[in-house]
Structures are given as C-alpha cells and as structure tokens.
Design a protein around this nucleic acid. Sequence first.
DNA 1: TTGATAAACGTTACTCTATAACATATCAAC
DNA 2: GTTGATATGTTATAGAGTAACGTTTATCAA
Lengths: 159, 159
Amino acid sequence: MSAKQPLGFDAHDHSACITDGVAAADDYCTRLGVQLTPVRRRVLEILLEAHRARGAYEILDILRAEGLGAQPPVAYRALDFLTKHGFVHKIERLNAFIACAHPGQSHAAAFLICRSCEAVAESMGQGALDGPAAAAGFQIESEVMEAEGLCPKCREDTP
Amino acid sequence: MSAKQPLGFDAHDHSACITDGVAAADDYCTRLGVQLTPVRRRVLEILLEAHRARGAYEILDILRAEGLGAQPPVAYRALDFLTKHGFVHKIERLNAFIACAHPGQSHAAAFLICRSCEAVAESMGQGALDGPAAAAGFQIESEVMEAEGLCPKCREDTP
DNA sequence: TTGATAAACGTTACTCTATAACATATCAAC
DNA sequence: GTTGATATGTTATAGAGTAACGTTTATCAA
C-alpha cells in the first residue's frame, strides 16, 4: 500500500493553494458583507492544507486542540457556511469535506477519489445528468458526481 | 447519445417491478450458486415496493416486526449482499437504499431525487466522469451520480 | 452612544447511520 | 460425520449529524 500523498494528482505550488484559497474567501466575504470568523477561517485552512477530504470530527479535533470550539455544532456550522458559499464541497461518498479547488467560479463539481492514498481531485464536470433530467422533466437543483478508484500515482505503485 | 427515460416518475405496471425484480434476483443467485435467503429476499421486496430510497433502520423496523431480524447488522448484511450483486443501489446523498431498476444489466447508475415527494428515478447514465478521469490518468472503479431537485409532478404541484 | 436586531458561538443532549467482534447455526463436499 | 465456508444472532460501540437553548458579538439606525 502506498503512502498517503497530501497533494493532488499533479505536482503544484501547494502553499499558493492555501494563500489563494483564504484570500478568495476573504474577498468574497468582504464583498457580500458576511463574516469570515476565526473558526470559519481556520476550518477553511485545515481543508486547504490537504487535497483530501476530512471528516467533521477530524476537523473538530483540531479546533478543540486549538481552543476554537469543542462541540460538533461548531464544526458543522463552519462547514455549512463554507459549503453554502462555495468554498468547501461535501464528498457524500466519504461523509467528509474538501476545500473547493476553483473558488469563486460557479460550477458543478465532480470528484475523483483515490481509494489508496485518499487524494481527491476536483474536476469542473458540467451537467452530466442534464440529458436524463430533461428527458424526465426533472428540474435539477444540485448535483453529486463522485468516482472512486486509483489515481495515476497509485496505479503505478499498486499493480 | 440518446437519453433514456428514467424509470420512477412515470406511471407503469408496478406489480411487475416487484415480481420481475425478485425473479431476476432468483435467477441470478441460482446461476451463481449464491443464496437469496429469506432476509435478503424480503429486503429486496421492501425496496421494490416503492420507487424511493429507504434507510437501513426503516428496513430493519419492518424486518423486526416480521421476526426476521432485530439488530442493525442483519439489515446491513442483507443490503451489502444485494448491493454487491447489483440488485440494490445506495443513494449516498440520503444515506439510504433503493432497488435497482435495471437488474442484471451492468450499468453506471445515476439518480434523480425529488426533494418534495422523495421519489427517486434511476437512469442508466454512462460514464459521465470518463473524460475528466482519462485526462487525469485516473482509473474509475465505481461512480456516484445523483441529482436532487423537483420531479415533473412536484414542479406542477409546488410552483 | 446607545439601544435594537441579527448573526455567530457554546453547550447539552439526542438521533440516525454504521461496523467490530464474537457466538451460533446451516449447508455442501469430502 | 467432520471440515470449511456461508449465513445469522447479539452485544457493544463508533461515527455522523442536528435540535434546542442560552450567551455573546457584530451591525446599524436613532
């Protein structure tokens, strides 16, 4: 079994992910007049630190250790806020959360989840269910698209 | 690509859904030499009775009332079996389960979930994530595609 | 500046979802 | 009939999520 790789599938300047992610949230909140409070900011940072999904209770443990909140609602409220405003996505398959890789851009998010190293890549897959929905007369309000399998790195490492 | 009409929102001979679903499972299990035990058969029937998703504990309540099992693992084991063999799908968005509308046919299942009446339609959407996955060198093993919104009936009823 | 209002936080307590672990039973094959 | 695989029964617990309440903090208007 291969080691967990904290980055996405591609090598990239990861410090920029965190900096840019928080900056984008900051700008957005200022423009809309909503608050990026310490707990919300910290939760976003925690999720930006890794290109993998983290459970609400895993996040809560970190918050608790840092004195930012000890009970589940603290984590869930921050996650709700960040999700509502598009900075965080929920991975339904994992009951876990991940920072958005394209903050600010409206998009139907799709995810590729590696079952070996737990890396998660976000793709801006557009409306895969639009065809069937139109045929059925169904009005889509939100979409979940998630694939589980092996990332390029783990395909080599684990034959 | 021709969009197939998803099953579930339209009127149809529903008794055939149950009969055919159980018969298909029976045939399959006979051919593969696996057992469609009373609990497994009953769970499949329960899910075939409605084109909506039911939680494991909702199913368990029925099993318990019928003397077929009282503890969670009983329901989860039956659901695992049925899911593994393709007779039941899990709706990740709802943490619930639904009978497969196309038993026996290998397919990547996609679901349209009505938030008003809770009806769930299954569409045989094929490989919506194939493109992004190929581009990333990602090997897909399983896929989740779920859309939530309003079904045709509820669009009229709830304007 | 103060008072009203909304937004956010802190905590308790609980529900729902899911599985680990172990004992018992059933059935097929040798 | 013993063995090994498969399935069930049960206890206990872990993990995920929320309702409800009171307190605090921010925002904005008078």
